[in-house]
Simulated assay, not measured.
Amino acid sequence: MSSSAPYLFHVTSQQTQVSPQTWKEWQDSLPDLVKTLTSVRATFYEEIDLPSNASSGSTRNFLAMYQSEIENPLDAKNGMDLRTTATEDGAKSDMTGDFDARNYALIQVYDPQNLGEVPPPEILTTEAQPADPSDFDTWFRTEHISQLAAFPGYRRTLRYKLGPKTAWTKGDDVPLFLAVHEVEDARVWMEGRAEAARKSKPSEWAVRNVKGCRVFRARGWRLVGEQGTKDRE
């Protein structure tokens, strides 16, 4: 069975010098971290709207996720010399953009179907800063994650805890936890969650942890491309 790498390099971005289409194509053609073995797998996404969900407030609507064996890939020798140009309208363009990059450590993989490292069509990412991180983590593992798996089109979930700050990390108050829910269709899955919430009363444990989150941010993403190994022995 394949396994996920112990670390994640998570980068949201927005183009500032070129068109959105060129930016998306450039993101999808970036083999650098995978080619140098700094990352074992890279997936690229563009943001999608979610039903009944307020805007995240971020204009960085592209996401690159690099699974890595290295805690801080940008500090690794192979991660320091990345391409910063692409071709647009036949000319070289500077791919300067607005980036927010974060390091995470893997803390849980929930894969009831044993799907492994197969890129899903869509994902939902949730960032959370709970009042009691230990209780939140136990609740998520013990009660919440199995409930999420019951909604239509669920594939698996990878959960991460914030790691060392990078030179590209924006802000000093980044939420501690990141969950990446892999699904067939994020809107359908979210609608399934909403329907279940209307039909059943949440536990006191769930209410305490959800209400106790100082920050909770959900965003939906559609797969643009993938590079690197799909299965790791």
Rank of each mutant, 00 (worst) to 15 (best):
V40I: 07
S58P: 02
R41E: 00
V34G: 06
A86H: 00
A76C: 04
V40R: 07
M65R: 11
R41L: 01
A105N: 07
I48F: 02
S56I: 08
S93Y: 10
G90Q: 05
M65N: 11
S58R: 00
R41M: 13
N72F: 11
D89C: 10
Y104A: 04
D32Y: 09
S55R: 11
E71L: 09
L37N: 14
N53D: 05
L33P: 01
I107A: 04
T38P: 02
A54P: 07
E71H: 14
S56T: 15
T84F: 00
P73E: 06
E69T: 07
Y66E: 00
T87W: 12
S52Q: 14
I70A: 11
G90N: 13
T36Q: 11
E47S: 04
A64N: 01
E71T: 07
N103Y: 15
L63C: 04
T59S: 09
L82D: 10
L74N: 12
R83C: 13
T96W: 01
L50S: 02
Y66V: 03
G57C: 09
T38E: 01
Y45M: 03
Q108G: 14
Q108N: 09
T59Y: 12
N78M: 02
E47Q: 11
T43Q: 13
L106M: 08
G97A: 14
A91V: 13
D81R: 15
T43P: 02
F99Y: 15
E71G: 10
E71K: 09
T38F: 00
E88L: 03
N103T: 14
M65G: 03
D98K: 13
A101I: 14
T38Q: 07
I70F: 12
V40M: 07
R102L: 08
I48G: 00
D94A: 07
L50T: 03
A105M: 05
D89L: 11
I48S: 05
M95K: 08
D94Y: 08
T84Y: 02
A64C: 12
F62Q: 01
N53F: 03
E69H: 12
I70N: 06
P51V: 08
R60S: 13
Q108P: 14
V34R: 06
K92A: 15
D32W: 03
P73N: 13
L74S: 10
D98Q: 15
S68I: 09
Y66C: 04
R102N: 07
D100H: 04
N61Y: 09
T96L: 04
D32V: 01
Y66F: 12
M65Q: 12
A105L: 02
P51I: 02
I48V: 07
